[in-house]
Simulated scan of single mutants.
Amino acid sequence: MSSPPASPADHGPGIGSETGTGISVAPVPLRLIVGDEELLVERAVASALVSARAADPSADLRRVAAATLTRPELAELVSPSLFAEGRVVVLEAAHEAGKEVASAITDYAADPADGVCLVVLHAGGARGKALADALRAAGAEVTECARLTKYDERVDFVRAEIRRAGGRITQDGIRVFIDAVGNDLRELASAAAQLVSDTDGAVDEAAIRRYHRGRAEVTGFAVAEKAITGDRAGALEALRWAIVLGVPAVLVADALADAVRTVAKVGAAGRGDPYRMAGALGMPPWKVRKAQGQARGWRPAGIELAMAAVAEVNADVKGAAADPNYALERAVMRVVQARDAT
């Protein structure tokens, strides 16, 4: 059966959660996620995992690039556990699978194993379409995650995000919000949640203009991203806008720490396929891929200095410093300088 696009507002109690009768429903054994909008795809995968863990809290998550699989490896991944432990197996980029593996996936779909939820990610389009069609025919639950290219689609997305965060927004407010933040779904989602929190849920044009002042949303992550890539001027400008817009100092400090830790983890793991590395590192493939680019230019000595800087600023913004904004500015400059450390 086909479900609507993976709008965050639509993720209520899913299959595998407890129903009103208190009976746990078995998770869906076969899911097909079609599209390449990363935010929506990751949310759909997360929904599948939540459903599986509602039935079995110990359910394991395994992600693998379909193009690297062999038929025996697939068979091993989807074989039932001897101890009846639940498992969610995510096949990344299934449209790139070879004929033999695509055939094996189709064969498995006809008789899926108990306790295993197979989640097949397909970019859509003509490549590998036969596999997607076969999975639909086999009764896979389908979630559409195509890129939102039309303005009306982004309007619907923003409205859903505001509602998901517990707020409400006017039609004029949505227009102003998109003009201020831009078209990136991750930024829209982050800004929506922040705005609902800051306005107690009543989001209107005046509130948006007051917080955004005609500029794109500046978050702690925007500051951290520029700092971690060595963009001193950009990071300081983003920080000053974040301060003007009222982004809490603690959130900026947390974002800096997260960026440094992520680069440290991904850099230490070495080069490799983001899809294969994602499970071991405990982060989605898009984040691994992004951090791999950011990690270039960083050396162990620099990471050590940056870790010390973000640890210190974390204490500073929680009361150790008289001026948390000055502490943040100093931390940003220390992270930028650490990147060039030998």
Rank of each mutant, 00 (worst) to 15 (best):
A44P: 08
A67P: 02
N314Y: 00
A264W: 02
T262Q: 08
G86E: 09
R31H: 13
G115K: 06
D107R: 12
V50A: 13
A331Q: 05
T106S: 15
P5H: 15
V101M: 07
A84C: 02
Q194K: 05
R154T: 07
G86I: 03
G293F: 01
E329R: 05
G173S: 04
W241R: 03
V288W: 03
A341E: 09
A227G: 09
L61D: 04
V45W: 00
G293W: 00
A6W: 10
V288A: 00
E217K: 08
E187W: 06
D172T: 08
H11Q: 11
D10E: 14
G282S: 03
V120S: 02
L82W: 11
S3M: 15
R339A: 00
I162M: 01
A52M: 06
L239E: 01
L245E: 13
T342N: 14
D198L: 13
E73P: 10
I169K: 04
I15P: 03
E187V: 14
W286S: 11
T143S: 12
R209P: 00
R289T: 14
A249T: 00
A137V: 10
R31L: 12
A206K: 10
G14S: 13
L245F: 13
V263K: 08
Y211K: 09
L32V: 10
A306H: 02
R164Y: 12
K287R: 15
A235M: 10
A322C: 05
E73C: 04
L281E: 06
V34N: 01
A253W: 00
D254Y: 09
G35I: 07
D198E: 14
A123R: 12
A264Q: 06
G220D: 11
W298L: 01
D172M: 11
L82M: 15
R296H: 10
V196T: 04
L121V: 13
T21V: 11
V89A: 02
S47K: 00
A113C: 08
A113G: 04
I243A: 12
G115E: 04
G302Q: 04
D152Y: 02
G124V: 06
G220Q: 12
G267W: 02
I105N: 03
A331R: 01
L39C: 03
A268F: 08
